[in-house]
Simulated scan of single mutants.
Amino acid sequence: MLAYGRQSIGQDDIDEVVRVLKSDYLTTGPEVPKFEEAFCAYTDAAHAVAASNGTATLHIISLAIGLTPGDQVIVPSISFVATANGPHYCGAEVIFSDVDPETGLMTPDTLREAMTRADPARLKAVFIVHLNGSPVDLEQIAGITKAAGLYLIEDACHALGTTYSMGNDTGKVGDCALSDFASFSFHPVKTITSGEGGMITCRDPEMVAKLALLRNHGLERDPELFTDADIGFEEGTGAHNPWAYELQMLGYNYRMTDFQAALGRSQLGKMAGRFAPQRKALVAAYRRKLKPIAHLVTPAPNTDNVDAVLHLMVGRIDFAGRGKTRREVMMQLRDLGVGTQVHYIPIHRQPYYAKLNPGLTLNGAEAYYAGCLSLPLYPDMTEADVDTVVQALAKVLGQ
Rank of each mutant, 00 (worst) to 15 (best):
Y151R: 15
G149R: 02
L336T: 09
I192C: 06
D318K: 07
R203F: 03
G54I: 01
A244L: 05
N363I: 14
G167W: 06
V208N: 02
M1K: 10
A50M: 11
E328V: 11
K355Q: 15
M249D: 01
G323F: 05
V126W: 00
F226Y: 13
Y344T: 14
T361L: 14
T227N: 12
S266N: 08
P135F: 00
T103K: 09
P76A: 06
N241Q: 11
Y151A: 15
G359N: 01
L263K: 11
T237M: 01
S23R: 09
Y344H: 15
T57N: 07
T55S: 12
R327S: 10
K289R: 13
K190E: 07
K146Y: 04
D230P: 02
P69C: 06
Q7C: 11
V329R: 08
G251P: 05
Y89T: 13
G10V: 07
K190Y: 02
K395S: 13
E328H: 12
G167S: 04
E220N: 12
V94D: 01
V342M: 08
A118F: 02
L377G: 02
G133K: 03
Q399S: 13
E31L: 06
D15Y: 01
E328K: 11
P242E: 01
E154F: 06
L131Y: 15
E37S: 14
D204W: 04
E16I: 00
H59W: 13
R203D: 02
G5N: 14
G398I: 00
H158M: 10
V342E: 07
L160K: 00
E139G: 09
M330Q: 15
T201R: 03
D380E: 13
E154P: 03
R316T: 02
Q341L: 14
Q260H: 10
Q399H: 10
D98P: 04
I65A: 00
G171P: 02
G371I: 08
G339E: 03
A148G: 04
E36P: 03
L282K: 06
A182W: 02
C202L: 08
P101Y: 08
Y254A: 01
A244G: 05
T227Y: 09
L213D: 03
Y352D: 08
I61D: 04
A244P: 10
Q140M: 13
S185P: 08
F226D: 05
L67D: 03
A209H: 12
R349S: 09
A365I: 05
V126R: 00
G104K: 07
F184R: 10
V32Y: 07
R316L: 14
G218Y: 06
D71W: 02
F186S: 00
R274G: 09
E234M: 13
R316N: 05
S8F: 15
S194H: 06
E93Q: 13
A365L: 06
I153Y: 01
N168K: 15
E93R: 14
D24M: 11
I128S: 10
D318G: 01
G339S: 02
D169Y: 14
A212C: 12
G236V: 07
G10R: 13
T388S: 14
V306W: 07
E139W: 13
V32F: 10
T382H: 07
G171S: 06
P358M: 06
H348I: 07
P205T: 11
Y25S: 14
Q350M: 15
A212T: 13
I231K: 12
L290W: 09
A114H: 03
A392T: 04
T201D: 00
Y369Q: 12
V189G: 04
